[in-house]
Lab assay of single mutants.
Amino acid sequence: MAEQVALSRTQVCGILREELFQGDAFHQSDTHIFIIMGASGDLAKKKIYPTIWWLFRDGLLPENTFIVGYARSRLTVADIRKQSEPFFKATPEEKLKLEDFFARNSYVAGQYDDAASYQRLNSHMNALHLGSQANRLFYLALPPTVYEAVTKNIHESCMSQIGWNRIIVEKPFGRDLQSSDRLSNHISSLFREDQIYRIDHYLGKEMVQNLMVLRFANRIFGPIWNRDNIACVILTFKEPFGTEGRGGYFDEFGIIRDVMQNHLLQMLCLVAMEKPASTNSDDVRDEKVKVLKCISEVQANNVVLGQYVGNPDGEGEATKGYLDDPTVPRGSTTATFAAVVLYVENERWDGVPFILRCGKALNERKAEVRLQFHDVAGDIFHQQCKRNELVIRVQPNEAVYTKMMTKKPGMFFNPEESELDLTYGNRYKNVKLPDAYERLILDVFCGSQMHFVRSDELREAWRIFTPLLHQIELEKPKPIPYIYGSRGPTEADELMKRVGFQYEGTYKWVNP
């Protein structure tokens, strides 16, 4: 592979701008107003304001973009700056750019259920340069409990009458099928589907988006991507930290609602779906819905739930269990780990287990898709061969690698495990991989909904998990304890083995 010439960040961002501006969906010269509902909250200060700053800094926003914060707290732009700027990672050389960014910011205080507050917000936006005809993007960085009041008031008082209007809704989209349907029906009564952007930030990850290209742009994968060759698929999300004093919020939802029903299920769809007619948003989402419709409700015998306990040999936070978090209700049975087996009941995947695993306070930070292939028929190497695996590593250190057998150097035919490896950090030294939120917010500006969740996708996802969630809430089974920093409950490994996964433990990928 030829040595790549190092590029400056300015040059890299210039390439990104060229890609972005050559499309006809990006209205570079139009006025846009980006409204952050819930501007005083954690999500706004840690993710949304920093993301908008990065896009502005790199010249990736339309030229005439204004940012308006809205929340109940009586704040000023200076207050917003004070709480969000520490997350910007701005350099001293960017000081003038930073001043320009905050000059485009404003803030309006108001209630979430008060019509007069929204009329005041609308008047404020109209007073901005060309504000009355601007395109408006409303980001709901809010708890779902206020979605209905907020969307109703936005629709009645704050819509642009000339430009387009788009609304970005953060997960969780309800707690179960019934609450999700209620919320979807409410929002759909106010906005068209092409105006609604239900954001799952995992769909903005580079390697998640790469799944489609790997599958449908490489001839070698087509013939082997089926039940005849693939023994099982494992989708993993692991965090090495616990709730760390923020367990009160987590306890309301648990690990299945927080990660599995959305992030992991979306990745499953991209692995299992048929080739779409095109890369058009609805063509892709149509195929994802077909996959979900082929999955039956989760069966309790295919589920393992766990909850982390303190590690007596650990240090600091590792010595504390979930129930030691003062914000967690006493005696909570909320799971911090889950392993679930699903089956896609169609011709391509009949009988292939899709194993979804996620948890907190585990032994490493990792998100990946792992396809394990069947054993080689007619073994001539005296059971020395391990199964081939194709691994798409989402985070950290984005990579695609194939675990395969090669001859060990020497005189004899002794096979050993090795890999074919594409590590993004080595291959793409001159490429700026956008943060997931950067990519998705740019998608909203461009009107691309491919990486957002459609209402029928959402409904099918909740259909699969709601009976299990209701059973857990009714019966309150005690989750299996696992030690902070471990791989999780051993019962999860036993479940995976029972459905056909072979864990060798003899080879570990190392970032080159």
Rank of each mutant, 00 (worst) to 15 (best):
Y70S: 08
P50T: 04
A127E: 12
D228L: 09
A71L: 01
Y202S: 02
E85D: 07
A39V: 05
K45H: 10
I224D: 04
P223W: 07
N64L: 09
I52N: 02
L140S: 08
P223E: 05
I52F: 07
R81F: 13
I220A: 14
H201K: 01
F216E: 00
V146Y: 02
N185R: 15
A231F: 06
V68K: 05
E156G: 13
S40M: 02
T10R: 15
K205R: 02
L183G: 00
N165H: 12
D42T: 03
A78P: 13
K171E: 01
I187Q: 08
Q195I: 06
T65S: 08
F191M: 11
Q178W: 14
P50S: 07
E239D: 11
Y107K: 01
Q161D: 15
I220D: 00
I199L: 04
S29V: 07
R74F: 14
T145F: 12
R104N: 06
R72G: 03
F237L: 11
I36N: 02
Y112L: 04
N218E: 00
Y139R: 00
L190E: 07
G248S: 04
R182K: 14
A103S: 07
A103I: 06
T145Q: 11
R175S: 14
A217W: 05
S84N: 07
K97E: 13
A109V: 08
A6M: 15
G204E: 04
S123H: 15
K45Q: 13
V108S: 15
L203I: 04
L130A: 10
I15M: 15
I35W: 00
S157R: 13
N122C: 11
R72K: 01
A141E: 00
S188H: 09
D42R: 01
Q195S: 10
G222F: 08
Y202V: 02
Y112I: 08
R219M: 05
G59W: 02
L121T: 04
L235S: 03
R9I: 15
D176Y: 02
Q178S: 14
F66D: 08
P240S: 11
A217V: 06
S160N: 14
T65I: 13
Q178Y: 07
L142C: 06
P62F: 05
E63G: 10
Y118V: 08
Q119Y: 13
D24I: 13
E85F: 06
I67D: 01
I33T: 12
D200Q: 00
T51D: 04
C158A: 12
C158V: 07
D251C: 05
T236L: 04
A90W: 05
F253Y: 08
I196Q: 04
L61M: 09
I15E: 13
Y147R: 03
F66L: 12
S8K: 11
R104S: 11
I48A: 03
I67A: 04
I256C: 06
Q28C: 12
E244D: 14
Y202N: 01
H186W: 06
H201W: 00
N218V: 01
S117P: 10
L55P: 03
F216D: 02
G248V: 05
R74K: 15
A116Y: 09
L137F: 12
I256F: 11
D251N: 12
T151R: 03
Y107G: 02
L203K: 03
Q209V: 05
D176E: 05
P86V: 13
T91N: 11
S40Y: 04
I187F: 10
S106K: 14
L98S: 09
F26H: 15
P144E: 05
N165G: 12
K82W: 08
P86W: 15
Y197D: 02
G222S: 15
I199A: 03
L7H: 15
F138S: 02
I224F: 08
G14L: 10
I255V: 14
P92R: 08
E148L: 11
G59S: 08
G174P: 01
G163N: 11
T65N: 05
L43C: 00
E156P: 07
L75T: 14
S132H: 12
I162G: 06
I67K: 00
F250G: 00
Y70W: 12
V233P: 02
R198Q: 03
N64W: 14
I35T: 10
L190P: 02
L190T: 11
Q209C: 08
F21Q: 05
L211I: 11
I162T: 10
I36L: 07
R166W: 00
A71W: 00
F253S: 07
S123V: 13
A134S: 12
R215K: 10
Q11G: 14
S29I: 09
R57S: 07
L16Y: 10
D114V: 11
R17T: 15
C232D: 01
F34D: 00
G222N: 13
Y107D: 00
C158E: 08
S84W: 06
R192L: 10
Q195C: 15
G38A: 03
N122R: 10
W54Q: 12
Y197I: 01
E148R: 09
S179D: 04
E252I: 05
D181S: 09
H27E: 15
N226S: 10
L140M: 11
L98M: 15
L130Q: 14
S180V: 08
P50A: 12
R136K: 05
T51W: 03
Q111T: 15
F101L: 01
V68Y: 07
F191S: 04
H186T: 07
S40W: 03
F101V: 03
P144S: 06
Y112N: 02
W225P: 02
K238L: 01
R74E: 10
D251T: 08
Q83I: 08
P92I: 15
R104P: 00
N185P: 02
E18K: 14
L75I: 13
G174V: 05
E239H: 02
L130T: 12
F216R: 01
T65P: 05
G248M: 02
E63N: 06
M37T: 07
L121H: 01
L55V: 04
D30A: 05
A116K: 14
M1R: 06
D100H: 08
L98P: 02
G247H: 06
G247E: 09
L142N: 03
L190M: 08
I224Y: 03
T10K: 15
V146Q: 13
D228E: 12
M207D: 01
L130W: 11
N153L: 13
Q195M: 07
P144Y: 00
V213N: 05
T91Q: 13
G254N: 11
H155W: 15
N226V: 03
F34N: 04
E93V: 12
G131K: 13
